[in-house]
Protein backbone atom coordinates (compact mmCIF):
# COMPACT_ATOMS: atom_id res chain seq x y z
CA UNK A 1 0.00 0.00 0.00
CA UNK A 2 1.31 3.40 -0.88
CA UNK A 3 0.99 6.67 0.95
CA UNK A 4 2.20 9.06 -1.71
CA UNK A 5 -0.25 11.74 -0.71
CA UNK A 6 0.89 11.65 2.87
CA UNK A 7 4.32 13.03 2.08
CA UNK A 8 4.83 16.78 1.74
CA UNK A 9 8.17 18.36 1.03
CA UNK A 10 8.78 21.45 3.13
CA UNK A 11 11.57 23.98 3.02
CA UNK A 12 9.90 26.92 4.68
CA UNK A 13 12.37 27.75 7.42
CA UNK A 14 15.14 29.70 5.79
CA UNK A 15 18.28 28.48 7.46
CA UNK A 16 20.68 29.57 4.73
CA UNK A 17 21.91 32.54 6.73
CA UNK A 18 22.60 30.72 10.01
CA UNK A 19 26.23 31.29 11.03
CA UNK A 20 28.48 30.93 14.06
CA UNK A 21 28.95 33.82 16.48
CA UNK A 22 31.42 34.40 19.27
CA UNK A 23 28.78 32.94 21.57
CA UNK A 24 29.41 29.55 19.96
CA UNK A 25 32.99 29.52 21.17
CA UNK A 26 32.31 27.45 24.26
CA UNK A 27 30.40 24.88 22.21
CA UNK A 28 33.25 24.65 19.69
CA UNK A 29 35.71 24.13 22.54
CA UNK A 30 33.54 21.50 24.16
CA UNK A 31 33.82 19.30 21.07
CA UNK A 32 37.58 19.22 21.47
CA UNK A 33 37.55 18.34 25.14
CA UNK A 34 37.90 21.74 26.71
CA UNK A 35 37.42 21.71 30.46
CA UNK A 36 38.50 25.09 31.73
CA UNK A 37 42.15 25.21 30.68
CA UNK A 38 43.75 28.58 30.15
CA UNK A 39 43.33 29.81 26.60
CA UNK A 40 46.19 31.95 25.41
CA UNK A 41 45.97 34.68 22.81
CA UNK A 42 47.26 32.43 20.06
CA UNK A 43 44.58 29.82 20.58
CA UNK A 44 41.89 32.47 20.96
CA UNK A 45 42.93 33.92 17.63
CA UNK A 46 42.84 30.50 16.00
CA UNK A 47 39.31 29.95 17.27
CA UNK A 48 38.23 33.32 15.92
CA UNK A 49 39.83 32.49 12.55
CA UNK A 50 38.16 29.10 12.47
CA UNK A 51 34.77 30.70 13.11
CA UNK A 52 35.35 33.24 10.34
CA UNK A 53 36.56 30.63 7.84
CA UNK A 54 33.70 28.26 8.63
CA UNK A 55 31.17 31.05 8.24
CA UNK A 56 32.63 31.99 4.87
CA UNK A 57 32.76 28.44 3.58
CA UNK A 58 29.32 27.38 4.80
CA UNK A 59 26.34 27.27 2.48
CA UNK A 60 23.68 25.71 4.73
CA UNK A 61 20.86 23.86 3.03
CA UNK A 62 18.02 21.83 4.40
CA UNK A 63 15.29 19.62 3.05
CA UNK A 64 12.47 17.91 4.88
CA UNK A 65 9.57 15.64 4.07
CA UNK A 66 6.51 15.50 6.29
CA UNK A 67 4.59 12.22 6.52
CA UNK A 68 1.11 11.81 7.95
CA UNK A 69 0.41 8.66 9.90
CA UNK A 70 -2.64 6.57 9.13
CA UNK A 71 -5.93 6.88 10.98
CA UNK A 72 -4.98 3.99 13.24
CA UNK A 73 -1.70 5.67 14.12
CA UNK A 74 0.44 3.27 12.13
CA UNK A 75 3.26 4.59 9.99
CA UNK A 76 3.02 5.07 6.25
CA UNK A 77 4.57 2.27 4.24
CA UNK A 78 7.48 4.49 3.22
CA UNK A 79 8.72 4.71 6.82
CA UNK A 80 8.73 1.05 7.73
CA UNK A 81 12.45 0.91 7.00
CA UNK A 82 12.99 2.77 10.27
CA UNK A 83 13.53 -0.21 12.53
CA UNK A 84 14.29 -0.72 16.19
CA UNK A 85 12.49 -0.11 19.45
CA UNK A 86 14.00 3.26 20.17
CA UNK A 87 12.61 5.16 17.20
CA UNK A 88 9.17 3.63 17.81
CA UNK A 89 9.35 4.73 21.43
CA UNK A 90 10.52 8.16 20.35
CA UNK A 91 7.64 8.66 17.94
CA UNK A 92 4.93 7.01 20.05
CA UNK A 93 1.73 9.01 19.92
CA UNK A 94 2.80 11.17 16.99
CA UNK A 95 0.39 11.83 14.14
CA UNK A 96 2.96 13.21 11.75
CA UNK A 97 6.61 12.37 11.18
CA UNK A 98 9.17 14.70 9.69
CA UNK A 99 12.34 13.46 8.03
CA UNK A 100 14.98 16.10 7.56
CA UNK A 101 18.44 16.41 6.12
CA UNK A 102 20.76 19.39 6.42
CA UNK A 103 24.27 20.13 5.21
CA UNK A 104 26.83 22.91 5.33
CA UNK A 105 27.93 21.99 1.81
CA UNK A 106 31.20 20.90 0.25
CA UNK A 107 32.91 24.23 0.91
CA UNK A 108 33.32 23.50 4.62
CA UNK A 109 34.84 20.07 3.89
CA UNK A 110 37.27 21.74 1.54
CA UNK A 111 38.17 24.44 4.07
CA UNK A 112 38.84 21.81 6.75
CA UNK A 113 40.90 19.79 4.29
CA UNK A 114 43.08 22.81 3.55
CA UNK A 115 43.73 23.30 7.26
CA UNK A 116 44.60 19.61 7.60
CA UNK A 117 47.41 20.15 5.16
CA UNK A 118 48.53 23.35 6.80
CA UNK A 119 47.94 23.24 10.50
CA UNK A 120 46.60 20.39 12.65
CA UNK A 121 45.31 22.67 15.41
CA UNK A 122 43.27 24.83 13.08
CA UNK A 123 41.94 21.71 11.38
CA UNK A 124 40.78 20.38 14.72
CA UNK A 125 39.06 23.63 15.61
CA UNK A 126 37.53 24.02 12.14
CA UNK A 127 36.16 20.50 12.36
CA UNK A 128 34.61 21.34 15.67
CA UNK A 129 33.28 24.66 14.38
CA UNK A 130 31.63 22.82 11.48
CA UNK A 131 29.95 20.38 13.86
CA UNK A 132 28.73 23.28 15.96
CA UNK A 133 27.34 25.14 12.97
CA UNK A 134 25.43 22.21 11.49
CA UNK A 135 23.82 21.65 14.88
CA UNK A 136 22.93 25.35 14.99
CA UNK A 137 21.34 25.05 11.54
CA UNK A 138 19.22 22.12 12.70
CA UNK A 139 18.34 23.94 15.91
CA UNK A 140 17.16 27.00 13.98
CA UNK A 141 14.98 24.88 11.75
CA UNK A 142 13.59 22.96 14.69
CA UNK A 143 12.89 26.16 16.63
CA UNK A 144 10.84 27.54 13.75
CA UNK A 145 8.98 24.28 13.50
CA UNK A 146 8.32 24.32 17.23
CA UNK A 147 7.00 27.90 17.10
CA UNK A 148 4.56 27.03 14.38
CA UNK A 149 3.53 23.80 16.05
CA UNK A 150 2.83 25.67 19.27
CA UNK A 151 0.52 28.05 17.42
CA UNK A 152 -1.41 25.10 16.02
CA UNK A 153 -1.51 23.42 19.40
CA UNK A 154 0.90 20.68 18.32
CA UNK A 155 3.90 19.23 20.09
CA UNK A 156 7.29 18.14 18.80
CA UNK A 157 9.70 15.44 19.85
CA UNK A 158 13.42 16.08 19.88
CA UNK A 159 15.54 15.15 16.86
CA UNK A 160 16.43 11.50 16.50
CA UNK A 161 19.10 10.49 14.00
CA UNK A 162 20.06 7.24 12.29
CA UNK A 163 22.66 5.59 14.51
CA UNK A 164 20.99 6.70 17.74
CA UNK A 165 19.98 3.85 20.04
CA UNK A 166 19.06 0.79 18.02
CA UNK A 167 18.11 2.65 14.83
CA UNK A 168 20.82 1.34 12.55
CA UNK A 169 23.12 3.71 10.73
CA UNK A 170 22.47 1.53 7.69
CA UNK A 171 19.06 3.19 7.18
CA UNK A 172 20.95 6.31 6.15
CA UNK A 173 21.02 5.50 2.43
CA UNK A 174 17.30 4.82 2.17
CA UNK A 175 16.68 7.90 4.30
CA UNK A 176 18.68 9.97 1.83
CA UNK A 177 16.63 8.72 -1.10
CA UNK A 178 13.34 9.49 0.64
CA UNK A 179 14.21 13.07 1.46
CA UNK A 180 15.89 13.43 -1.96
CA UNK A 181 19.09 14.45 -0.26
CA UNK A 182 20.72 15.09 -3.63
CA UNK A 183 18.62 18.23 -3.95
CA UNK A 184 20.70 19.81 -1.22
CA UNK A 185 23.94 18.26 -2.46
CA UNK A 186 24.02 15.65 0.30
CA UNK A 187 25.26 12.18 -0.63
CA UNK A 188 25.67 9.00 1.37
CA UNK A 189 28.41 6.46 0.78
CA UNK A 190 27.86 2.70 0.76
CA UNK A 191 29.40 2.78 4.27
CA UNK A 192 26.52 5.13 5.26
CA UNK A 193 28.77 8.13 5.74
CA UNK A 194 27.26 11.47 4.80
CA UNK A 195 29.26 13.62 2.43
CA UNK A 196 29.65 16.61 2.76
CA UNK A 197 30.80 15.64 6.23
CA UNK A 198 29.08 18.40 8.15
CA UNK A 199 25.58 17.08 7.55
CA UNK A 200 22.75 15.81 9.71
CA UNK A 201 19.77 13.60 9.06
CA UNK A 202 17.09 13.43 11.71
CA UNK A 203 13.52 12.47 12.50
CA UNK A 204 11.09 14.67 14.42
CA UNK A 205 7.65 13.52 15.53
CA UNK A 206 4.64 15.83 15.73
CA UNK A 207 1.81 15.03 18.13
CA UNK A 208 -1.56 16.58 18.88
CA UNK A 209 -1.04 16.23 22.61
CA UNK A 210 1.82 17.03 24.99
CA UNK A 211 4.62 14.49 24.92
CA UNK A 212 6.21 13.09 28.00
CA UNK A 213 9.69 14.55 28.11
CA UNK A 214 12.04 11.78 27.19
CA UNK A 215 15.46 12.78 28.32
CA UNK A 216 18.11 10.76 26.61
CA UNK A 217 20.75 9.58 28.99
CA UNK A 218 24.27 8.39 28.41
CA UNK A 219 23.17 4.93 29.49
CA UNK A 220 20.94 4.39 26.45
CA UNK A 221 23.29 5.95 23.96
CA UNK A 222 25.01 3.59 21.57
CA UNK A 223 28.13 5.74 21.74
CA UNK A 224 28.31 5.02 25.46
CA UNK A 225 31.67 3.28 25.42
CA UNK A 226 33.37 5.48 22.90
CA UNK A 227 31.87 8.93 23.35
CA UNK A 228 34.43 11.65 22.82
CA UNK A 229 32.63 13.90 25.29
CA UNK A 230 32.61 11.31 28.04
CA UNK A 231 36.20 10.50 27.27
CA UNK A 232 37.01 14.11 27.95
CA UNK A 233 34.92 14.21 31.08
CA UNK A 234 32.01 16.21 29.65
CA UNK A 235 28.65 15.28 28.13
CA UNK A 236 27.11 16.03 24.76
CA UNK A 237 24.38 18.13 26.26
CA UNK A 238 21.39 16.21 24.97
Amino acid sequence: MRDAVSAVRITEEDISSVRLTQADRSEILRYIGYSGQKIDENLAQRIADAIAKTNRAADPKLTAVLYTCREDGSWPEALTFLTGDDIHRHLAGCSRILLMGATLGAGVDRAIHIEEVRDAISALIMDSAGSTLIEAVCDSFEAGLRRRAAKEGKYLTTRFSPGYGDLPLAVQNRFGELIEARRIGLTITPEHIMIPRKSVTAIIGIADHPLRARKRTCADCNMHDSCRFRKNGVVCGE
Partner: peptide, 14 residues
Amino acid sequence: KQVIFLPQLISSAN
Protein backbone atom coordinates in the same frame (compact mmCIF):
# COMPACT_ATOMS: atom_id res chain seq x y z
CA LYS B 1 45.88 15.73 34.04
CA GLN B 2 43.74 18.06 31.89
CA VAL B 3 45.95 21.03 32.68
CA ILE B 4 46.19 21.51 28.93
CA PHE B 5 43.83 20.25 26.23
CA LEU B 6 44.17 18.95 22.69
CA PRO B 7 45.06 22.11 20.76
CA GLN B 8 47.78 22.87 23.28
CA LEU B 9 49.12 19.33 23.08
CA ILE B 10 49.42 19.68 19.30
CA SER B 11 50.95 23.10 19.66
CA SER B 12 53.70 21.71 21.92
CA ALA B 13 54.24 18.86 19.51
CA ASN B 14 54.68 21.33 16.67
